[in-house]
Design a protein around this nucleic acid. Structure first.
Length: 563
RNA sequence: AGGGGCGUCGUCAAGCGGUAAGACUCAGGAUUUUGGAUCCUGCAUUCGGAGGUUCGAAUCCUCCCGCCCCUGCCA
């Protein structure tokens, strides 16, 4: 049996494919497709589908097409087509030359519609939208048949042609499938096949005035492309009978099979394209690529790697039960990846000035610093050390709590890669009482951060030399929403659930000089703090970093518990 | 109420009649020149519930309960 991805876990879809292969369906071919509608940006939920479809194809040595489902010109734009291609590519998948559009098939689809009319299985209905709704019945009551349901084929053909020619106004008539108005499945109550839309299409311009509905276009597009397994989300389960009906009635050669799986829900965020669009349009975020957004563009800008997202998609599995995945898993995948690849560097986010009184004025030493302890091949660099340095405000406490082993009056701490320093004196702002500077002494014997006299210096602080460091802006991010499941909060509008502290900009951070000229998109670990990446907002003189994700912080947890 | 689905640890998720994988989270501990990383250990006597079949049931049967989706000329 042509086995799927060896390391990827199995799932019910693979079981189905295995079974199909065993029964020699589709001559042993496996051909999938990822079919986005270009009406917004791709998000992490789409990533699940992309990984699934492309992953299945490669696992079975098959193919996966990229197909834009562009059957509604009112909502779709070329900007989204370009963004989607960029994102799929970035995620690491290649559709080669199989880039298709449902709009490529408009002529063919129209012929199929004509065919259906000739078969007596479709008719032009002149009921208004409200009438159609009324005729449809309800969940419990069957619908009623349209008075136009039994129009002769010739008349339907003529009317449909005139719809196509643009003779009728929008909403005046539509082509419907003649199925069963009493079906318990509402999708089968004579669904619309073609409607009149006079808005120009982003690809075909004003060539068409009628557009096919999703159910009609999708199954036939799949068939035209030779798709064997058409994988979609759960809400289309009810549409499967219709998917099959069109293919059966039209007796197509290629019979794809639709399989539904549960879409991804991620805690502390939302996945609805409509809502994400609203956040963008109302300026609640800076754009589709705002680093707080669950969009692939946002995650990329935030500093997520494609590898970590693919790993995540593999770990969450594929099933049919509605689920809510904890964002902590995504963050775990990210840290695991970044830990291996990010260069370590020192940056002080909230600087506290430290003067080392016994260190010679004007002296500068170049300290050796490894770039990544996880990977010696990453090499080392020199970091300048001098009499005045900055340490993290948080690494000093005038009145240290229990188990705090950082700096405090009279205490000694190690400056990573440099020396032990001891706090001799605390200088405060006379008016506010705020600590503004520390006076310390260093131990010349501790160069490199170690002595062999058995001294136990447990605390290690990162630092930068005041005179050599560069100024930088650092953007700290937190969950976009305070609620773990914004969609489930029945009482509140999701916008009121936005986290007011999801962005915290620190304008006066100091970073080590080796960061000069760091390229947008590059990843670093700011020692002891987290993973950061260079934001495209950076310019020659001004570095801007995004905190991708913090490091695990066991001390922070201990402190939080106490409070 | 009609139809379609789904219910296994806090969260995902294996399991397909032979006696509950794994991951994340969480809690302990070891180790550590990042309170990082790494490494150990612990965490479902029970699978929505109740009956039944069987030597044996999360897996099969019956009934019940709960959750999700469907009445766009959206996808």
């Amino acid at each position: 049996m042509p086995d799927a991805d060896s390391n990827a876990p199995s799932n019910f879809i693979k079981d189905i494919i295995d079974e199909d292969l065993k029964n020699n369906r589709n001559d042993g071919r496996v051909h999938t497709r990822f079919p986005p509608e270009p009406n917004g940006y791709l998000h992490i939920g789409h990533a699940k589908s992309i990984c699934l479809n492309f992953g299945l194809a490669s696992g079975y040595k098959g193919l996966c097409n990229l197909r834009f489902d562009d059957t509604n010109p009112c909502k779709e734009e070329s900007e989204f087509v370009e963004a989607i291609k960029r994102d799929v590519q970035w995620l690491g998948f290649d559709w080669a030359d199989r880039e298709y559009f449902a709009s490529d098939y408009f002529e063919k689809l129209c012929q199929y519609a004509v065919e259906l009319i000739k078969l007596g299985k479709a008719y032009v209905c002149g009921l208004s939208a409200e009438e159609i709704r009324e005729y449809r019945g309800s969940l419990t009551r069957p619908g009623r048949e349209s008075p136009h349901r039994d129009r002769p084929v010739e008349e339907n053909l003529d009317l449909f042609q005139r719809m196509r020619d643009g003779e009728f106004e929008e909403g005046t008539c539509l082509l419907r499938a003649k199925i069963n108005m009493a079906s318990p499945n509402i999708n089968m109550r004579d669904p619309a096949i073609y409607r009149i839309i006079k808005t120009p299409h982003h690809r075909t311009g004003d060539k068409w005035r009628i557009y096919p509905m999703y159910d009609f276009a999708h199954c036939l597009s799949d068939s035209i492309e030779g798709i064997t397994h058409s994988i979609c989300t759960l809400e289309f389960e009810d549409h499967r009978p219709l998917y099959d009906w069109y293919l059966d009635e039209l007796k197509v050669k290629c019979r794809p099979r639709q399989i539904e799986f549960a879409r991804l829900n991620l805690s502390h965020t939302i996945m609805s394209k409509r809502k994400l669009m609203e956040l963008v349009q109302e300026g609640l975020v800076s754009g589709w690529d705002d680093p707080r957004m669950p969009t692939l563009a946002g995650l990329r800008r935030r500093g997520f790697t494609p590898e970590s997202i693919r790993d995540f998609c593999e770990r969450i599995g594929v099933a049919k039960a509605d689920s809510m995945v904890d964002v902590a898993l995504l963050e775990h995948c990210l840290r695991e990846d970044l830990n291996k690849r990010a260069l370590r560097v020192m940056a002080v986010l909230r600087p506290l000035r430290v003067v080392i009184e016994n260190y010679p004025e004007g002296k500068v030493e170049e300290m050796d610093a490894e770039n990544n302890p996880e990977y010696p091949g990453a090499g080392a660099r020199k970091v300048p050390f001098s009499r005045v340095v900055y340490i993290e405000l948080d690494d000093f406490r005038e009145d240290p709590p229990r188990n705090f082993f950082r700096l405090a009056p009279g205490r000694e701490v190690r400056l990573k890669h440099a020396y032990y320093i001891k706090c001799e004196k605390v200088i405060k702002d006379e008016r506010t009482g705020e600590v503004v500077e520390l006076r310390c002494t260093y131990d010349p014997e501790s160069r490199g951060g170690w002595t062999n006299d058995g001294r136990k210096v447990k605390g290690t602080s990162h630092w930068v030399s005041a005179g050599h460091s560069l100024e930088a802006e650092v953007r700290l991010y937190d969950h976009l929403f305070t609620s773990p499941n914004p969609d489930a909060e029945k009482a509140a509008d999701y916008k009121t659930l936005l986290n007011p502290n999801s962005l915290n900009t620190l304008a006066s951070c100091r970073v080590e000089p080796s960061l000069a000229g760091a390229v947008p998109g590059s990843h670093y670990q700011f020692l002891r703090q987290g993973y950061f990446c260079v934001d495209p907002d950076s310019s020659n003189g001004k570095l801007v970093f995004n905190r991708t994700v913090s490091l695990r912080d066991t001390w922070g947890k201990v402190e939080k518990k106490k409070n």
